[in-house]
Each structure stands twice: as C-alpha cells, then as structure tokens.
Design a protein around this nucleic acid. Structure first.
Length: 825
RNA sequence: GCUCCAGUGGCGGAAUCGGUAGACGCGUUGGACUUAAAAUCCAAUUGGGUGAAUAGCUCAGUGCCAGUUCAAGUCUGGCCUGGAGCACCA
C-alpha cells in the first residue's frame, strides 16, 4: 500500500468502477424498507457552486448511511431546466436555449460525478425535455378539467426587465425575484391555478409535518394568512339598491365607524363618485395607477385619499358617514373596501388625523379609560357608545354583533385568506407551452391528450425585444380547433417553471414511463420523500406549490398520499468572509479547483465539518487544508499498519487494560456517530468524532513498541471501524483503503456497525465532587458503586474533608455515576 | 410594526435529562526532527489575582437584569443586539 495519499488518482479510479458496476442503481423490487433521500434539483446555470456541493453532500451522506442501515434507498438527481437565464443567454449569444442548457447539464453532470455522489442516473429527470414536459402539460389538463386551472383578466405583477408576469410569491419587496427589477401592475388575461381552494388544508396539514422546521411552517402559515371576521354590507344613501360590503376582523367596533374607504380600483367606484368630485377622484386614481408597487406599498408613506361625495348608512345605528377612496385599501384583499374606525385602528387613525375626519371611542381601555387623542387603542377592552352592546367585552362582542348582522340580513361570518391564486402564465419561450387553443367558435379548448406534447417551435427569433420569442414562430400559433376542426390560435404563453418543479419528485419513482407521468403504485411505494434537503429560499415558493400539487393530484385519484415531503432539512448558506458567496462580490470558490487540489473527499469532509447543516457555513481555505491533512493522517494510519491489520480479526476477552480501553473508545464512537447522524444530521460533531477516534488510535499505537497478536486484532478492529464509519463521507479514500487491506467487495455494501451498550462507556467513571455547587474534586470510582458508597467516597476525600472541616453539612445530593454535591454552611 | 430564530474564547463551533463550560478543529506561541525548508510530531492557548513557575491555589466568566434550584449555557420573566420572513391583509 502506498504510504502517500493521492486523492486524484484514487477518486477517478473508483468513480469509474462504481459507474461500470452500476453500484448505485436502485431496484423497485426489494424486501428491504424503502428510503427516499432527495436534494432540491438544480437549475443548470453552468457550474456547480458551493451551495450545491453542500446540499448534495448532505443528502448523499444521508443516503449512504441509510443504505448501510439496511434500507432500499432511492437517491436520484435531475434538472430544473426551463427558465429565463437560458433564454437570456440565447439572446446574448445567438444560441438556442436548448443547446445552452444541454451544455450546462453535461458540464454539471461531470462535476456531480467528480463529487462521488451515489445517484441512480437511470432516473435522471430533465424538465425541458419533451418526455417530461409532455406530462407537465398532461397534468395541467387534468387540473383544467377539475376546474383548478382557469383564465381570467386580473391586475397582475409585470416585470418589464423580464418582459413577463410574475406570481405573488415571486415579488420580493415589490421587486422581481430574479432580476430585482421594479414590478408594475398590469391588467391582463392570464392562467391561474386555484391554490386558494386548498388554502385551509394547506394550513391545517402543516401540523402533520413533524419533520419540518418550525421556521418554514410559520412562514407558510403567515403566507396563507388566515383570518376570521365578518362581511358587513352598507347601503349607499344616494343610490337606491347599491351596497358596499366590507370585510372586517373587528366587527366589535362597528359603532365607531366614521367613514368608509374603497380601493382606487374598486369596481363600483365610478357609480359612487358624485359629478362634483369626479375630476379629483379620476386624478387620484390615475396617480395610483402610475405609482410603482414599491412606492405604493411603502408603510412609511403618508396615507392619501379623496372623498367620493356619496355616503353610507350604518345599519347598526342609522348614522351616515362619507365614502372615500384611498390607496391603503387593497382591491385584491377582502371586498376591496374598508370600514374605518380611527379610534381603534392605527391606519384609520393616521388617515383621519390628516383629513380631519371625526373619531368616536367605542372600546374602553379598562386600565386607562382615557380618550384616543394621540393614538388608536387596539387592545382588548369594554364596549361603550355601542347601543345594546355597551358593557360587553370586545371579544364577545365580535360574535354578538356579527350574529345581529346575520339575523337582520346585512352581514355574515367570513374567513379570509391572504393567499391568492397562483398565476402561471409566462410570456416567455423557454417553458412548457400551456396546452390550450382559442377558437372563435368554441372558445378555450384544451389540446387533446393524444396530441401531447405541444412542442416548443424551433423557428423563432430570440433577438426580439419586449415580447415572447415564441410569438415570432410562423408555425406555432396557427392550428385547428380540436373541437370543431376550424381554424384556431394556440396559447403562446408558457408555464411558470415552478409548475415543472412541483411534481418532479414523483417522476423519479418512474422516470421512464412513456404512458403516464408515473405509475400510481410506484409513486405510492416510494413517496413521500423521507428526507428532503434544500435551501430555505424555497420555504414558500416551491414547497408550498409542491404541497398543493400533491393534494390536487391526490384528489384527482393519481396518488394515495397528500404531503410530498415527510422530513425537510433546510441547509444554511455557504459564506466566505462573512457574506454570501457571489460573483459580484468576487468571493466565490470554484469546486473544480478544490477537487483538483485536494480531491472530492476533502471537499465533502470540509463542507460538513464546521457548522451544523441548518446553519450558515463560513468557507475558509485554512479549513480545507485542515481537512486534507486529516485525511492524510487517516491514510497514513492505515498505510503504515497495513501489515498488522487483518479483515478477519477476532477479539478474545478479557483484553489487556489499554486494549480494552481502545475497544471501548471504538464502541463509544459508533454510538456517538450513529446518534449524531440520526439526530438532525449533526455532521459537524460526527466529523469531530472521526478525529477523536483517529487521535485515540494513534495515541494507543504510540505506546506499542512490539505489538502482539491481541494488539494486532484490536488495531484491526479499530481501524476497520474507523474506515466504515467514515465511508459515507470520505467515499473514495475508505474504498481504496478497504481494498488495500484485502477486501473483495465494496465498503459501501457493508452494513452499518452496531455498538455494544456495555462497551460503549469507560471502564471506570470520574466522580465529580462539588461543594455548594462548585467543583472541588474528581475521583475515579468503580462503576458499580451505590449511591451511599459514592457519598462516602466523596466525604472521605482529603480535599473535601479539609473544606468541610468544622462546617455544618446541610445536604448531600448524589447523582448516580456522575456527581456528588455537598451543601455546607 | 408583526412573526420567528440566534447571541458561548482570537475564530468556526461542542456540551441527550438542568449536573466537570469551552469537545473537535482553525489560528497563534513555543519546542522536536532537518544543513534548511516542506511534511510530521509534542506542548501551551477564556480572563483576572497570587506565584520564580509552563506547579499549586483562588476569583470571575456562556449578550444584559432578575427569578426558580443543592446545581442554570440549558428552565421562567423582562430587556439589549444581530439575522430571517411578512408587511397599509382592514
């Protein structure tokens, strides 16, 4: 065995052998229990970055660990390969997005293989290929038939830079999630998926997801944004038969209404405007339209509005109050109209102050029944100035007042969600075409399933600006109606890429099926994903959409389960010098360089070593160096002792004291490492335990000048255990060493080691003796000592005797096998 | 503003149940080997006090202030700082 470690040589050699022997193929038929380990698949942007390396290494180690524990593991990989960057690259370089994408996939595949990841490449899924997007389209049609996909004219988010619309989830701080460009509102007819039908179950089922972090669940909960309240309808005084309904979560404050606000886009706003106010209202509305999302949504902005001139009547007390329009009312939420109670709502308060609108206190602060001159009182209290409800607690009044409104016919209980339907139309080329046609006679007609896929056209001009390249095709749009056979027009919008990624995890279960998206039995067998690993940035987008898809497909009868991901690990970012690695900051580290200089095993070891997976990881060159040195140290340990190590060692008890100690250290390492992986995948402590074990073997060995047979057996036991424990991480080094020691099969087919509970502890224990809670002495004691014996040992220690001399011993607390605390006065 | 998370040496971090704070590593310092270097190995490394001492002893110490307890990094209450998400959602 070579005395030096040459990772580049070893790694290439084994990658080739594993590939040729099909070492990582997964069989659908196995007696073993299944385990599905999945990383979020990447967008093929060109090259792997360290975030990918971290993500895939984590999942790979999990997959290998579970395989060693006796599971039949599914660990696939694929490409989320539709999307705008390919199209932008095409515009820039004149290449076809497909060519650009294929090249990137080829390069990144090579890199993934260099990392030594245990993927079953036979199940590779690529969303931009017709054999995949055919089924994306098919699934769209199923949703359409069920009424879960529909087209409507709506105010949508438009990114001028990307020349396309965006889903609500893709607008971050009023800007485009991808290009950071400002987002404006446009009125367009677009395709939506009815995710709001599932709002309640998406919220409720978060409780089922015991294996998800609370942070992600809370983010989804907030995004869905369920609230309970009431709809109350107000008659308009000036216009017979016209009502303005409002949604409120504070029906207890209805007696305090002093005005009512509708959004500038409110549907009846023109009817509600008197001729005298028309000019001003028109001007205000035009301004609101022009304003960008960011300006409009800024909470620091002073609220503005104009009166419409008409009035509403409060059905509870007959009071009249004016109608205004103001852009702090949102047309998309609730009814688009708000009842204003300045005394008990901070926004209404600001507005009323500015425009000198009246205020009326209806909830009294029990601890300070002062007025509401300086700020709104929004805490619980007792109703006043509220007719028959005076004296009631406001929480009770919510229900009582709504009940009155229901009984008298001008109100109802209402649950409201913040979640809006998912806008999936994109005015771009590089996506799955939405499979519908428009016929003058028949209207919207879905494409026949037998005619799928609707293929992307090739005759397009990517240099066009301001419209989708797909519209430049001479052949694509023109078609015939599947219904009447007459001339018809194809939909030229493509689907949001998040539609493609909402079901890819199902396709892996049956990646080559050409008859359907997946076989129901195979999907039911492999899913849900046992461990999903990916970035927190998908907490809402991808993870919410995928949950919705799974539930919808379950309701379509395609699946028997309704949550796709049983356990979710959201890994932290990879930082360098305290900030996120990015090209613009120039602090990126190229994985290729690391592979070349240190090998993949070093990269894998290091990326897992310093931080727990969920936390951010700070990349340091010195840290890489340290891991490389450690692997060298392990290699030398094996190489320099190769002659003394035998694969068929046997341990004959009783062992010499120092040998017994080392055997115990190994058992403790097996136990500790197994528990650390099982318990939230704490790989950083796993790796520190590799080092401890290695150090212990070196220490032990340093004392052996003339090893006898027993020593050699113990050494074999320890070194082989170290290799097996390290095999999920240092996949190449351990395999090479394993074979150098004479093994025939792969170390990756070996079963995970078991530990003996009796041996996984030191032969004696150190008793800590405290006086008044402070450590004063440590005494080696026999493990079997009773509590009384421990107490006696502690009290008889010379040090303790000295300290307790002449003092009154109030109490002695004995923690078995650990500690004695003596309380003195 | 609301919601959530996190604060431990020079640094990354460790510490199942409340029970030896600082595992393991990085860095730093000193030493061994070497003509020299690299590599490797050994030792020290929370701060203060006392001390010739790298011996011993001693005090303080896990963001701050209280509390519960024989015992608090860990539990409770209140604050401070940093990060993330949502943000005029009525």
């Amino acid at each position: 065995m070579k005395q030096s470690y040459f990772p580049q040589e070893i790694e290439k050699k084994w990658q080739k052998i594993w590939e040729e022997s099909g070492a990582f193929k997964t069989s659908d038929d196995s007696e073993k229990p299944k385990y599905y380990a999945l990383s979020m698949f990447p967008y093929p942007s060109g090259k792997l970055h360290m975030g990918h390396v971290r993500n895939y290494t984590i999942t790979d180690v999990i997959a290998r660990f579970k395989k060693a524990q006796g599971y039949n593991v599914l660990h696939p990989m694929g490409w989320d390969s539709f999307g705008l960057p390919a199209e932008n690259a095409a515009m820039k370089h004149g290449a076809d997005p497909e060519t650009w994408t294929d090249e990137n996939i080829a390069y990144m595949t090579k890199q993934l293989k260099m990392l030594g990841l245990s993927y079953d490449w036979d199940r590779e899924v690529t969303t931009c290929k017709p054999d995949y997007y055919k089924w994306t389209q098919w699934l769209f049609l199923q949703l359409y038939k069920k009424g879960l996909a529909y087209k409507k004219e709506a105010a949508v988010n438009w990114c001028e830079n990307c020349a396309t619309v965006l889903a609500n989830e893709q607008v971050i701080d009023g800007k485009c999630w991808r290009c950071d460009g400002e987002v404006e509102k446009k009125y367009l007819s677009q395709w939506f998926l009815k995710i709001t039908d599932y709002a309640d179950v998406l919220l409720k089922d978060l409780d089922k997801l015991k294996g998800w972090g609370d942070n992600v669940k809370i983010m989804q909960e907030n995004w869905i944004g369920k609230s309970h309240g009431a709809i109350i309808k107000f008659k308009v005084k000036e216009i017979e038969g016209l009502e303005v309904p409002v949604y409120t979560t504070r029906p207890d404050t209805v007696y305090g209404i002093t005005y009512l606000v509708v959004a500038p886009e409110y549907k009846d706003i023109e009817k509600l405007t008197t001729p005298e106010n028309k000019a001003k209202v028109e001007e205000y509305r035009a301004n609101a339209r022009k304003m960008s999302e960011i300006e409009r949504l800024s909470t620091d902005r002073v609220k503005t509005g104009v009166p419409l001139g008409t009035h509403c009547i409060n059905p509870f007390n007959g009071e009249e109050f004016p109608l205004w329009t103001a852009d702090y009312a949102l047309v998309e939420y609730g009814t688009g109209a708000v009842m204003a109670v300045p005394t008990h709502d901070t926004r209404d308060f600001d507005f009323a102050k500015k425009y000198n609108l009246p205020m009326k206190v209806v909830i009294e602060n029990p601890s300070n029944p002062s007025d509401c001159k300086n700020e709104a009182y929004t805490e619980p209290g007792i109703l006043v100035n509220s007719g028959e409800f005076n004296g009631m607690k406001n929480d009770d009044a919510k229900k009582a007042i709504t009940e009155k409104a229901v009984k008298e016919g001008y109100g109802e209980f209402k649950t409201q969600y913040r979640l809006r339907d998912w806008l999936i139309s994109r005015q771009r080329y590089w996506g799955a075409p939405i499979p519908v046609v428009y016929c003058d006679k028949c209207g919207i007609v879905p494409v026949d399933e037998k005619d799928l896929p609707v293929m992307l056209p090739k005759d397009v001009d990517f240099s066009v600006v301001g419209k989708s390249p797909i519209t430049t095709s001479k052949t694509f749009a023109q078609t015939t109606c599947p219904h009447c056979g007459g001339p018809a027009r194809r939909e030229t919008d493509t689907m949001d890429t998040f539609v493609c990624s909402s079901w890819y995890y199902l396709r892996y279960s049956d990646a080559k099926n050409s008859e359907k998206p997946f076989d129901r039995n195979l999907a039911n067998k492999w899913l849900p994903v046992d461990q999903y690993v990916g970035g927190i940035e998908h907490a809402i987008l991808h993870l919410l959409y995928s949950r919705f898809f799974t539930k919808a497909l379950r309701d379509l009868g395609l699946l028997d389960f309704d949550e796709p991901f049983k356990n979710l690990l959201t890994q932290g970012m990879v930082l360098k010098d305290g900030s996120k690695m990015s090209k613009s900051k120039g602090n990126t580290v190229d994985p290729d360089e690391i592979f070349e200089n240190y090998g993949a095993d070093t990269a894998r070891l290091f990326i897992l070593s310093d931080s727990p997976p969920a936390r951010d990881f700070d990349w340091s060159d010195a840290g890489v160096e340290g891991c490389y040195k450690f692997l060298n140290r392990v290699w030398r340990l094996v190489a320099s002792n190769a002659d003394d190590i035998s694969l068929d060692y046997s341990l004959d008890y009783p062992l010499k004291k120092d040998n017994d100690d080392l055997v115990r250290i190994v058992h403790m390492a097996i136990k500790g490492i197994t528990n650390d992986i099982s318990n939230d995948f704490q790989f950083n402590t796993v790796i520190s335990k590799y080092r401890e074990l290695t150090n212990a073997i070196y220490d032990w060995q340093g004392k052996k000048t003339n090893p006898d047979n027993e020593d050699k057996n113990v050494l074999s036991f320890a070194v082989i255990a170290l290799l097996k424990l390290m095999s999920p991480v240092a996949v190449h080094l351990t395999e090479e060493a394993w074979h150098e020691l004479g093994a025939k099969g792969s170390i990756h087919d070996e079963a995970w080691l078991e530990w003996d509970e009796n041996l996984a502890k030191a032969s004696s224990i150190t008793l800590v003796v405290q006086v008044n809670g402070k450590v004063k002495d440590k005494i080696e004691v026999d493990e079997g000592f009773s509590q009384d014996e421990l107490k006696e040992v502690a009290l008889n220690s010379p040090k303790i005797k000295e300290l307790t001399e002449g003092k009154n011993i109030v109490k002695v607390i004995v923690v078995p096998k650990k500690l004695v605390n003596i309380v003195i006065k």
